[in-house]
């Protein structure tokens, strides 16, 4: 069983988490062109690397952002939400 070590809730089995995909910044819907919007909706950085990702801990209902290496499946650190915040 794979375990995720989270400073807030301790070591929890990975099966308690739901993967929420990579953190990405949404362009302003009123300003983005159709092409830019399609790019946001569909295009992904599919190459392996260290990525910031949303993970939902289901029992506690909390969303976390973790940095994970998608080549080795190692969870590197919990990301402070302030790092990924942006103006809507």
């Amino acid at each position: 069983m794979k375990v995720i070590d989270c400073p807030h809730i301790g070591k929890r089995p990975m099966s308690e988490f739901v993967y929420g995909h990579e953190v990405r910044e949404m362009p302003k819907p009123s300003e983005a062109s159709d092409k830019e919007w399609a790019d946001y909706v569909f295009s992904r950085d599919g190459a392996p690397g260290v990525k910031k990702e949303w993970w939902h801990h289901v029992p506690s209902g909390i969303w976390f952002v973790f940095e994970r290496d998608t080549l080795t499946d190692k969870f590197i650190r919990l990301v402070d939400i302030a790092e990924v915040q942006y103006e809507l």
């Binding site: 790019d39 569909f42 295009s43 992904r44 950085d45 599919g46 190459a47 392996p48 998608t70």
Partner: peptide
């Protein structure tokens, strides 16, 4: 390995592994 190859030519795709 598609995203590794497409990133070599700077092509964006929706592919995830």
């Amino acid at each position: 390995s598609s995203p590794r190859i497409t990133s070599m030519v700077g092509l964006k795709t929706p592919i995830e592994i």
